[in-house]
């Protein structure tokens, strides 16, 4: 059963990533693009976790953790820039 569930899950998450890219390119305003980037990070974590399950390897966990950390910092920095016009106060 897992043998067909995992490819379906890959297809769904890849479609999600494609839609994020569409919003990233199209997004009429800056917060839209930042939101698309943030979602892109989260979906990349999902892809990495799926890859880890598929290959039965725990190696991808560290990469997922790093993306979670860095993605959050990036989003906060960009939002701060929009709010204050400056990142470091």
């Amino acid at each position: 059963m897992l043998s067909w569930v995992i490819p379906v899950a890959f297809a769904l998450v890849t479609a999600a990533v494609a839609m994020n890219f569409w919003r990233l390119i199209r997004g009429p305003s800056l917060p839209d693009r930042i939101l698309a980037l943030d979602t892109l990070y989260v979906n990349t974590i999902a892809l990495l976790v799926l890859l880890g399950i598929h290959l039965a390897s725990a190696l991808y966990f560290e990469a997922a953790l790093l993306i979670a950390l860095m993605g959050f910092v990036g989003t906060v920095a960009l939002c701060k820039y929009l709010l204050r016009g400056d990142i470091i106060e």
Binding site: A9, L12, A16, W22, T39, L50
Partner: peptide, 13 residues
């Protein structure tokens, strides 16, 4: 998990 990830991005688009 995959379906919810997909629906979330569908909402975004």
């Amino acid at each position: 998990g995959a379906v919810f990830t997909f629906i979330g991005s569908l909402g975004l688009a």
